[in-house]
Computed example of a mutant assay.
Amino acid sequence: MGNPSELYYKILNISKDTSPKEIRAAYRTLVRQWHPDKHPASSKNEAEARFKAITEAYEALLDQQENGAAFGVRSNVDGKRDRIERTASASAGAGTGATGGVGGGRAPAMPRAQSEKTAPRTAPCTPAREFSKKVYSSTDIGEGGRAGRRAFAEFSSYVVRKAPPLERKVECTLEELCSGCKKEVKYTRDAVTKNGLIAKKEMTQTIRVKPGWKKGMKVTFEGMGDERPGCLPGDAVFTISERKHKVFKRKGNDLVLKAEVPLVSALTGWSFSFRLLGGEKMGFSFRDEVVFPGYEKVVAGEGMPVSGAADKGARGDLRVKFDVVFPKNLTDEQRLGLANILRGCA
């Protein structure tokens, strides 16, 4: 951090071998993004701080590159440019010239503090002069870039400081997760008023639940959570939860249905029916097969939709698990009768 130019490259999000033309392009993109007039009151302070740091970094890097060209640039063996730092005496003895705009040339001959007093300049962007006070000067650069670090500290403080997320749960039925739905969610957030106080504000967001979503799925509305003075607004994060179903249980993309079968029905034949999540009726009949404990009937493609699958119609399976209910008591006559009947069964 001893070299202030490292801060400037970070502020403009460019590499150290960036050309003046690329620096100007990066600057134009960032000032359009962070112009304070384009931001609401809640983020205006952040936008102004970024705008200041972006403008100062842009001017400082062009000064460094163009003064390097004026006072001598030598090439290393690998072809990289090795800029020679200007000295105070060289800066004082250089000539003057008019400064161009965002895309024009600049006067590399004198330090910025001197040139601003003796030669009129065309600001790279009018709002830059409206919102940008000097965060550092060319003198500060020679002294180790203390003010440059202050500019970056002010800039980065808004990047890392963000109000904690506001988290809420959104309960959905298994039917809603199967077919998809819209959920209108109302919640209360903290909002910073014009005088800096915190007031409660009622909010409503629409969540579009897609078919096949699972519990734990998170939906985030950036900047729509709580506000805190001097911080970026937090996010509003809604986590999908699943209401317990009276018939089905979800296992991944499969649906599990447990059915109890009386012993006599499991041995002699049995029929039963139920309704799927979509309301369709489904039934099973057992005539020639014996239902034993742990018996499972799988119906392919009758489970939950597979969210995000390439095949839009992909679905899990329906698994019907049978639990055979044995009698708790038998009479001696019943025992004898069962023994005679079952003795010959393999």
Rank of each mutant, 00 (worst) to 15 (best):
S132H: 00
R146L: 13
V159L: 15
E167G: 04
K162M: 09
T139S: 14
Y136M: 10
S156T: 12
R161H: 10
V135L: 12
A147H: 07
T173N: 01
A128Q: 08
S157L: 08
E143C: 00
R129K: 10
F131M: 03
A147V: 02
T139W: 14
G148I: 02
S157T: 13
G144W: 05
E154S: 13
R146I: 14
A147M: 11
A163T: 02
L174T: 02
T173F: 00
S137A: 08
V135N: 02
D140Q: 11
R168N: 06
V170Q: 00
A128G: 03
G145P: 01
V160P: 00
V159T: 15
R149G: 11
A128D: 04
K162R: 14
A153L: 14
G142C: 00
F152L: 12
K134G: 09
S157I: 06
C172N: 11
S132P: 00
K162P: 05
S132K: 03
R168F: 07
R129N: 07
G148M: 12
G145C: 07
I141F: 07
A163M: 01
V135P: 00
A153H: 12
E130L: 13
R149A: 13
R168S: 07
V170C: 08
F131W: 11
T173E: 03
S156D: 15
S138T: 09
E167A: 14
R129Y: 02
T139F: 15
L174S: 04
G148V: 08
A147T: 06
V159N: 13
A163C: 06
R129T: 07
D140C: 10
E171P: 03
V159A: 15
V135G: 08
S156Q: 13
F155L: 06
S157H: 11
A163W: 02
E171Q: 13
A128H: 01
E167D: 13
D140Y: 06
E143S: 12
A163E: 03
E171W: 00
T139G: 15
E130P: 00
R168I: 14
K162A: 05
R150L: 06
K162Y: 06
R149S: 11
E154A: 14
S156R: 13
L166F: 04
A151V: 08
F131A: 03
S132M: 09
S137T: 15
A153F: 10
G144R: 04
R149F: 06
T139I: 15
G142H: 01
T173V: 06
P164V: 06
S157W: 09
K133N: 11
R149Q: 12
P165R: 08
E171I: 08
